[in-house]
Design a protein around this nucleic acid. Structure first.
Length: 228
DNA sequence: TTGTGTTTTACGACCTCC
DNA sequence: GGAGGTCGTAAAACACAA
């Protein structure tokens, strides 16, 4: 899941501005950064192996409220608190990289690129995901700002954030689906990344507001789980 | 070193809601 | 019509065994 050292290998890089892919023709360049080795990540921020994915989420403190405003405050460094993480520190440690690199490294047709986000970026995103599995427009902009992005880049970044959350939810669903398939009625709960959760807890946290109609709703999944 | 499997980023198609 | 959701998938990045 959160693999070993190589995935954390770009810790000492300046933040990639979180503008890795230039899917737009007017974008300035391709920000592919080859993964260097791992040194310089603030100790304990993500750890050399990303750590246990959810067990250490408590270090980020609670996520009061559905909007994640407290988390946002923490990210912006304006909240006192648990102190295990300071985005302001990261911002200063990883100032925005220069924007313009030559458009190189195109690896796929139709302007598709792929870069590896820094641990810092993933940490930020995972923290936000921990608090809210659905991110608001405002929070996307705040995250972009917290990652030291310029105003011009922010719209692109919010798109990246949106896609990251989509992929992250897909990953979560995949994990839960796998767990459900393994669920054989042993105690009526599933050991999720967040710990031992009831089917209700799992499903209600994984699925979007109820306006969706073309996908399984939490109640549907719950029924699957409890009927197993 | 190389082959293979897994994870991560990115996108297209299609959907609903406002 | 635009925004944002899921689903499926391509392909890079990565891990690891042989």
């Amino acid at each position: 899941m959160y693999p070993g050292p190589a995935r954390c290998s770009n810790n000492n890089l300046p933040v990639q501005n979180f503008v890795p892919a230039p899917p737009y023709s007017d974008y300035m360049g391709y920000h592919h950064v080859p993964a260097p080795d791992s040194h310089g990540q603030p100790a304990g921020a993500w750890g050399p192996h990303y750590g246990p994915q959810r067990e250490d989420w408590n270090a980020y403190g609670p996520c009061p409220g559905p909007s994640g405003t407290a988390a946002a405050a923490q990210l912006s460094g304006s909240s006192p608190g648990h102190g295990s993480y300071s985005p302001a520190e990261y911002s200063s440690l990883h100032p925005a990289a220069p924007a313009g690199l030559p458009p190189a490294g195109k690896t796929r047709t139709k302007e598709k690129y792929r870069v590896v986000y820094t641990d810092h970026q993933r940490l930020e995103l995972e923290k936000e995901f921990h608090c809210n599995r659905y991110i608001t427009i405002r929070r996307k902009s705040e995250l972009a700002a917290n990652l030291g992005l310029s105003e011009r880049q922010t719209p692109l970044i919010t798109l990246q954030v949106k896609i990251w959350f989509q992929n992250r939810r897909a990953k979560e669903r995949k994990i839960i689906k796998k767990k459900i398939s393994q669920f054989d009625g042993s105690g009526g709960s599933v050991q999720s990344d967040s710990g031992s959760l009831s089917p209700n807890e799992i499903t209600s946290s994984l699925f979007p507001p109820a306006h969706r109609t073309n996908i399984l709703q939490p109640a549907d999944i719950h029924q699957v789980i409890v009927s197993e």
